[in-house]
Design a protein around this nucleic acid. Structure first.
Lengths: 196, 196, 196, 196
DNA sequence: AATGAATGAGATTTCATTCAT
DNA sequence: CATGAATGAAATCTCATTCAT
């Protein structure tokens, strides 16, 4: 990490973690543009100076939030794959509200924080690769013309999950129930429930 | 419309249109958070004061950008539906880069501009309804278990289209070709090309 | 008047009168600092440009409000002096809410609009002189050591009246009833009610 | 106090005191409406940003000015009551130019800064109560029909004092000497000089 | 008689960042 | 580790004023 050199304060500091968590919450509730030093500090109940102590530049904080979100996403992905019904658990990670919402906010952020873009892109690709690997391992021969190749399936499900979350935040629900049911049908066709 | 009263200057003013266009470009290139009076003015080659003359509050400008984007989206949707191959034309509207990117930016914006949210939600629902109606009219009996009900199809395609654009902006392309091919296969199954 | 030359539009214009009235209301309700072209125009239901048409400079408008307030004050003073109980009617003009409040606002305004100061000072002196003349005419020999000379009486009553209004606007009423009663006692001693 | 939380910088900071003092002077010389960040900073010889550092919102600064003025007024009131001739010293506080002028400016300010109004009203009532208590203690049985009850006396003298200051600022002096003399006569009747 | 367009100034506020302690 | 002080930039908004029609 180019910014590792700039980080001050132990990676393990509880205060540091508190700040990152506060920033995450602010981003989720008010959008990435609201994740300013002052607001994050207020949210964490700390002084703005302390935020700067741990994160000299705003970008450092945003990267940390990113990093934490990515790590958490990875953890949940592993958990899903280790669960009794990995296929459906995988789909669940794709529609987990706060996780997906943060990912979306993060992608919007990347649009005007070019420095963060690479990091995010890399993680998106990483996740995609793991999902693809999982599909291959789980479904193998069962991948049908219907579901397409694992790469397609991964992107299709990801896109649908994001649309559900994104529109849900807007208060839009038209077609949501039908789409969710369609996905379930697809999963059933690929791997009947309880079979995994 | 509450903002009609606040609008200054004729709807037909060339300057006004110039400002909205500049704001749209800034939003697309630098993210919605960058659509400040100053930057928009600079982009349009005008003085910041003039932007405020036409759009007393920032929200007025954002709503205008929104309105323009919605109108353009509607126009392209109509065009698509009137084309010789409406199904594929419809899919094309869902993956049109600038249009979809603006829609995404707009949805991110809605997340922290509560006043704009309703307007956006309404338009998303409107478009969804039109897509559903189009699928019903175009496909009718041909809707298969494969593609699900029209509502599901609309959301599925929208989500995939958005994912392609969103990740494209990030520079991510893993799975994109496969997903695009998968959609084409789906469309072919529903209505062989050249038949519409 | 130095500004007569700058006035545009007939003095008798109904629109003009409407603007002055709106300005007066804004000053009373939101303080003199709120009497901007835009707000006055909004209050009058007119376009800001029209306000500038009638009052090229803000000072012109403020002077007009002043002028109107002074004229109205003069009218009420005359009315009071012509009434059956002029002494008490005079006291009533000194505690008339909106009139006195406008006078107070106007004096605050004079503090930072030096150009208006002279005009206001002149009017205050004029009113004082008339009150003194009225006291002399009405009370003549009856002026007592108790009430002091007419000049003192005029200032004393004016000051008390202003204090009642000023504090009333703040929501303070401590001592108000007692002070009002004290004034009544003073007036009774000078001229028993019904005798005038 | 709600603003205690918002206060930045130690109460004892010299810079902070400097800013409050500059604001007070600006208010006295140019009216409360002129007490903007820029002008106050210029007056104090500081950068506008620094004013915002100590007083995040303009209201915080105005409240601080208020607070200082009230404290100073209280101090002078105590001094007056402890002096050898408390009655006349009290009257002197009511006509002290800068103190009274600031109080007047402050009351005008309260008219359109609703958030400050309560604070000011409370202080006006407090001062009134103290004056009343002082009159009761000092004069006791000597309160005459002439001077009315202590509550009336307090408001009457306050009103006259304010009128003298307010008109003095305008350059008006008609009746001032007579009114001052009248007050002195009143005080003499209540408590002959040198007797207190 | 009235109005739309344009502009420069300034007020309020939020911000990121640097520095000294 | 942590914090207070200071600063320059910028965002949002309001204003008075001028000009052309």
């Amino acid at each position: 990490m180019a910014n590792a050199a700039r980080r001050v304060g132990a990676e393990s500091s509880a205060t540091r973690a508190l700040i990152v968590e506060a920033a995450e919450q602010v981003m989720l509730e008010e959008g990435y543009a609201a994740a300013s030093t002052r607001r994050v500090a207020a949210r964490a109940g700390l002084k703005p100076s302390l935020v700067h102590y741990y994160f000299p530049a705003t970008e450092d904080l945003l990267l940390a939030v990113n990093h934490k979100g990515a790590a958490e996403g990875d953890r949940r992905l592993e958990e899903a794959l280790a669960s009794p019904d990995p296929l459906r658990a995988l789909w669940k990670t794709m529609t987990d509200t706060s996780q997906t919402a943060l990912a979306l906010e993060t992608m919007a952020l990347a649009n005007h924080r070019k420095a963060i873009r690479t990091e995010i892109a890399r993680h998106v690709e990483e996740v995609r690769a793991r999902q693809v690997a999982a599909f291959e391992r789980l479904l193998g021969e069962r991948m049908t013309r219907f579901a397409g190749p694992p790469e397609a399936l991964a992107l299709v499900l990801t896109g649908i999950g994001r649309a559900l979350i994104m529109e849900g935040a807007l208060g839009v629900s038209a077609g949501h129930a039908e789409a969710a049911k369609w996905v379930e049908g697809l999963l059933d066709a690929l791997m009947p429930a309880g079979e995994g």
